[in-house]
């Protein structure tokens, strides 16, 4: 008896990868008009993919990744920033073949509208959502899947909703997920202020530190810079 009541989104874009190492350019949902971008990635045997994804503005990314052949690997890095708007990342990773591996690190920030976001504000406070399903089909063995959802909630009323999910029909698996939601580390803020850095800058530096390891996964300087600029605009109050 197998069924999954979490439906897959029909994808607009489908990309397949063959065996080898691939460092993909980031998928970026720039937002504005509430864009929903749905992408499906198929990893064949031996295909190892590093993929950064960003939702930086009002919009949603629906991503499905099929690990369809033995030796397929997914390394996903995601970031969504809901600055006075709704930003969603929805990821479904399907382990359809044995001996596959997936690692996900998705970070989220929810805060009030910044200057740049003022034109596309749903509400004064943003709502960021992450839903991440790891699905392991029956008969699929030696699966190693990990997913971490780390979120920072900056202003009262801004909202983070995170739903890490596991749907597993095989037993020779090691699957885990973790999710945290919190504010900035107040102790770290105090530490920096004690060294003379003013509070706003201390908070800003921490936020930049928070997103640094996702932005750094962009494979080229160009994409890295473009994304850093967008993030900067969103977070500037």
């Amino acid at each position: 008896m197998i069924f999954s009541n979490i439906p897959e989104v029909a994808a607009d874009e489908v990309v397949a990868f063959e065996a080898g190492d691939h460092a993909a350019e980031p998928i970026v949902v720039k937002g504005g008009s509430g864009v929903i971008r749905s992408v499906k990635v198929v990893l064949g045997a031996g295909a190892r993919l590093r993929l950064p994804v960003f939702v930086l503005g009002r919009g949603k990314l629906a991503l499905t990744v099929d690990l369809a052949g033995a030796g397929a690997e997914l390394h996903l890095y995601g970031l969504f920033i809901a600055a006075g708007m709704d930003a969603d990342i929805n990821v479904r990773v399907n382990h359809l073949a044995s001996d596959t591996l997936s690692r996900q690190l998705v970070k989220g920030i929810a805060t009030e509208a910044g200057e740049a976001g003022a034109r596309n504000v749903d509400a004064e406070q943003g709502r960021g959502e992450f839903t991440g399903m790891i699905f392991v089909a029956k008969g699929v063995q030696r699966v190693d899947a990990q997913q971490y959802s780390r979120n920072i909630q900056l202003t009262p009323g801004a909202r983070i909703v995170t739903r890490p999910q596991l749907e597993i029909y095989a037993d020779d698996v090691k699957c885990s997920h973790g999710a945290t939601v919190g504010g900035l580390d107040e102790e770290a803020i105090f530490y920096m202020r004690q060294r003379g850095v003013d509070e706003a800058t201390a908070r800003r530096m921490q936020l930049e530190g928070f997103v640094a390891d996702i932005v750094s996964r962009c494979p080229t300087d160009d994409s890295r810079v473009e994304i850093a600029v967008r993030i900067d605009k969103l977070l500037t109050q």
Binding site: D185, A188, Q194, R195, T201, M205, E208, G209
Partner: peptide, 30 residues
Amino acid sequence: VEERAREGLFLGFQYPVEIPGVTMANFMKA
């Protein structure tokens, strides 16, 4: 807190906190 620091008060913490993602370089520069 930061005004006191800029005036020249320094606290050596008993349990210095870790701040992932923020480099010593950027921190000290500021």
